[in-house]
Design a protein around this nucleic acid. Structure first.
Lengths: 356, 356
DNA sequence: TTGAAAGCGCTAACAT
DNA sequence: ATGTTAGCGCTTTCAA
């Protein structure tokens, strides 16, 4: 059961050339006669030769592997994000290596610096995880190796970053609710977070809330930042849904102004809110309109289908890989020669049943 | 910007020992005096030394990386499966490397054999992907390297396999519908598939249908295998939902027996069916009860919440890793000495609103 | 256009 | 308990 795979030496011997020539031939390097290359390729094929990546990496220092770090897989949003990033990575001839942090800043830091892999196996890292944005020396943390941050939302970018259209997207979502006739709009997804605690993912939520609140103020509608409902995930969304439902039922009884719309900072939270409203017998959109943010697949077939701001994850993936491949190229040429770049991806308002 | 990371040699020099002793000390190997180990560890810490995995792999032939191959990330089911498998893999001190095939048998085969990695970087592979079950020489395809198949459903197991409780689970689901008073039950998720086309994932669906049909026959209820509704994913589920709704509306008009229950071979399809029924104005569970299979997270917060057969993915992950680590151990000891093993994971009937 | 030499950083095997 | 030797399979460098 010994795995005696053929080595480059075997191929070279079979083709009657030196290992070096065989290597050059197989890599399509110039300076190899066509007939020689053909002989080598034939020999490799015949022996079912496959390059030994570990040896190749050890010598060349390049792996063509890109490290993708995300919070988790089991969420509609992340599974979609990972899908987009891995697809684009593969399309560029690179190999994606996905790792999850389970929302732990420690795990994220660990993934970046203290894995045996980091800095040796990976040619670059693309990261979207909680708890990294705060401690400044991000670029330094990665030891000068190519790094792209997703939705880092740094005021002064210290590394290449692709951001979500947090503020504009949220503004558009709330404007949509207003157009549909909503006058009293609940905002779900944030609330007061001590400044020091603002990890970068959460920071992006702050921007979404700012955009949402801004749209309300612009329209002359009431907005009280202190009564924002918390709802980062489904569970919290359900609680927020209960709270909103109770507020509506109270208002109805007391003859006050009842919520007739809700903006949720992500689709996940929106699903929870709808569920929470249903627990109290309130229906969407009949009793209250609800819109989410992200554009996860499930929104298209949920009941009701979910209106949302769909962010262009394919574009995100393209931007991220443009940035990382550029840095890898620069590194090979001796060093970085451009400052950190920043891009914001596009979005589309998707109007569905939940705001009909 | 040159990455001059410290090597083992540097650590050894700093600690005043030989590289070999440093290596042994850092790996916790026996036969190193405690004071020496402490010195080495301190030196490593001080220099921020990290082992060079490529070199280590090249020499030792072991990477501690497990290759996980699945169809995709962006589905409630797979994201959950991947979550369970990666978590368990990490818990055992191994590193998960996840790859997706997008349901392409070619991509699956490619992932197993023609990646530059396969057979060198990975200590073992765990795979759940379409289009592998048919062509027999699976064990051979993996060149004798440790391989665990998820839900392979081979009649005569040729490799270690962890199966889903397809037949029993489906039977239980349909029995649940019957207990809730359903008398005319639609089966969604399969239908006639030419035998040669039966890839392994689809084969597992055949078992689910067999279990469902068996439950109907056992209860003396009508079952016509030829009128099974197709519905592997949400889109097909929506179409199935339309078809079922039309049949119900027709039956109501003609005074015939209308469907009052539906078993769906996976939750994804069930979401689609519910959506398709809603398109025709039919409500779940009022007009028809619906149950799914898998137990994806979204079922808990969908509206209505989805009854389902929840399979124990954590157990699946434990089984799979038990099997793979055993093979890795055997390989290190000279070769496999046991025949392929097979396990079936447990399940729980989860009764929720959709069958209330 | 081709080949020979050297060595990437580590560890198995064998001294001491 | 520690050190020495050799070499994993490849590629960079330099020579032919």
């Amino acid at each position: 059961m010994t795995n005696a795979r053929p080595t480059l030496r075997d191929v070279a011997a079979a083709a009657g050339v030196s290992p070096m020539t065989a290597s050059n031939a197989l890599h399509g390097k110039p300076g190899v006669r066509e007939s020689t290359r053909a002989k080598v390729v034939a020999a490799a094929e015949k022996l079912d030769y496959r390059i030994n990546l570990t040896a190749s990496m050890l010598k060349s220092g390049r792996s063509n592997i890109i490290h993708l770090i995300v919070n988790e897989f089991d969420s509609p949003f992340y599974s979609k994000l990972v899908q987009a990033l891995t697809t684009e990575t593969s399309a560029r001839g690179l190999t994606p290596f996905v790792e999850q942090t389970h929302y732990s800043p420690d795990a994220a830091r660990q993934a970046m610096t203290h894995t045996p892999f980091s800095g040796q196996l990976f040619d670059g890292e693309i990261i979207h995880a909680s708890g990294l944005g705060t401690n400044l020396p991000l670029a330094r943390m990665n030891d000068g190796r190519p790094l792209v941050l997703i939705d880092g939302c740094e005021e002064t970018p210290s590394v290449d970053t692709v951001n979500f259209p947090n503020e504009e997207g949220a503004r558009t979502a709330v404007q949509h609710l207003i157009e549909r006739g909503c006058r009293r709009i609940a905002i779900v997804g944030g609330g007061y977070v001590p400044r020091g605690e603002l990890a970068h993912v959460e920071h992006s939520y702050g921007l979404r809330l700012r955009g949402a609140g801004g749209a309300l103020l612009d329209a002359g509608l009431p907005y009280d930042p202190t009564v924002t409902f918390h709802g980062y995930d489904v569970t919290m969304g359900i609680e927020a849904g209960h709270a909103i439902a109770d507020a509506i039922l109270d208002a109805r009884r007391d003859g006050g102004d009842a919520f007739d719309g809700a903006f949720c900072a992500n689709d996940y939270a929106a699903f929870g809110v709808i569920r929470g409203l249903a627990d109290r017998g309130l229906r969407v959109p009949d009793d209250i309109r609800v819109i989410g943010f992200d554009g996860v697949s499930a929104g298209a077939y949920a009941t009701p289908t979910l209106s949302t701001v769909r962010v262009d994850l394919d574009q995100l993936a393209r931007f991220a890989l443009d940035m990382i491949t550029r840095r890898i190229g620069q590194l090979a040429d001796g060093g970085y020669d451009t400052p950190p770049s920043r891009a914001t991806i596009g979005y589309t308002l998707v109007a569905r049943e939940s705001t009909a």
